Simulated scan of single mutants.
Amino acid sequence: MPICAYDLWPDGNCRKAPDLKPTGRGSLRWLHFDLGDPELAGWIAEHLPPIPGRALTEQETRPRCDALGDGLILNLRGVNLNSGAAAAEMVSLRMWVTPKTIITVRKRKVFALDDIRQGCANGTGPGTVGRFLDQLIHGLALRARDVVLDLTAATETLEEQIDEGNLPADDALKTPRRDVLKLHRYMEPQRVALTRLQQLGDRIMTPEEQTDLREAVNLVTLSDEALTSLNHRLAVIQDHTDAELARKMSRNSYILSIVAAVFLPLGFVTGLFGVNVAGMPGLETPLAFAILCLALVALSAAMIVVLRWSRLF
């Protein structure tokens, strides 16, 4: 039923669990489940308290860390590195952690957790809860940092285009801004949850393990602060782009208005002289057409002079 089940010892030794009980022969038992497993609900109802059981099976989660008895309900998010998925669509990881048990439930593959599983499959793993959480959170934080660095590079490219006087394409600006907003939606509460974990960690971690965890939390904090900065920088680029487009549209509308102002009297005169009725002046004069053309040129010049004098052109 579970994706994996391991007993771990403090020296790093790791063996497959012979049964699916929450605790085993080692100092720590880790059980890892898929949320879509139809047998998961029954196992949880049999072995876990109701509140953490419901927390592990929620369809929608946000990062949190709450104490319950001798355990912690811990929900985290990691960047989505699954094939064909967008990294900003962060994947959820639900956890119930006690001094001797770690239960993890995922909906989609979490690569930081899969690294731990691969190590356990090779016979070595984190032998304590503190080491397990430190390795997991470091893995989540480093992968998130790489995605944030890519977004930072994309933002710097857009800023360079602005400095060179070029406006970025719509997709070039829309995509990183959307990704930053999606990541920031979970990274900020994740930072809060991990800060809370530091405060509650003494019940399941040694002081040395808490110190190591502090470095992982610092990485998450740096990524969250970088996302906040990127959000503001991209907003400035968007405002500048919108202002430039509005200025160009205003300029084009202004030029069209000037052209219309010049040609309006010309259209009136040509329309008037185009009336095919008797009595029009110049019908008997051979130079009438030339005189009319010269008059139209003079009228156009006069209109331009008036507009320039009025500072409208």
Rank of each mutant, 00 (worst) to 15 (best):
A17M: 02
G53I: 05
R77C: 15
R233K: 07
L113Y: 01
K21E: 11
A298C: 10
L20K: 00
L81K: 07
R191C: 13
N276S: 09
G201P: 06
K174M: 15
A55T: 08
L183Y: 01
R203G: 12
A193C: 06
E159A: 05
A226Q: 08
T241M: 08
M187F: 13
W309L: 13
R54E: 14
Y186Q: 05
L40K: 00
R178E: 04
A153Y: 08
P189A: 03
L81S: 08
R108P: 00
L140H: 06
A88M: 06
D212W: 11
V236G: 03
Y254I: 03
V97C: 01
L167T: 11
W309Y: 12
D212A: 11
L48M: 07
L264I: 12
P22S: 05
I116D: 01
D146V: 09
E209Y: 08
T98Y: 13
A290P: 03
L20N: 08
S229R: 14
A226I: 01
G267V: 01
V79I: 13
A260E: 05
V147G: 02
S27L: 03
C293Y: 14
S300F: 06
G139V: 00
L167Y: 05
D115E: 15
G201Q: 10
L227S: 06
K174G: 07
D150G: 04
R62W: 09
V91D: 02
W30N: 00
W9C: 01
D224C: 12
Q198T: 14
I102N: 06
F268P: 03
Q135E: 15
L230W: 03
E188M: 12
T157M: 10
F273D: 14
D11E: 10
G130M: 04
V97M: 03
G42M: 11
S310C: 13
G125N: 00
L256V: 12
F263Y: 11
I162G: 08
L181V: 15
L234K: 03
D150A: 08
L72N: 07
K100A: 15
A153N: 06
M187N: 05
F132H: 00
C120H: 00
G26D: 09
L307C: 04
A243H: 13
T104A: 12
I116N: 04
P265E: 10
L28Y: 11
L113I: 02
C65E: 07
S83N: 12
R77L: 06
F313T: 03
I3Y: 00
S253C: 02
P22T: 02
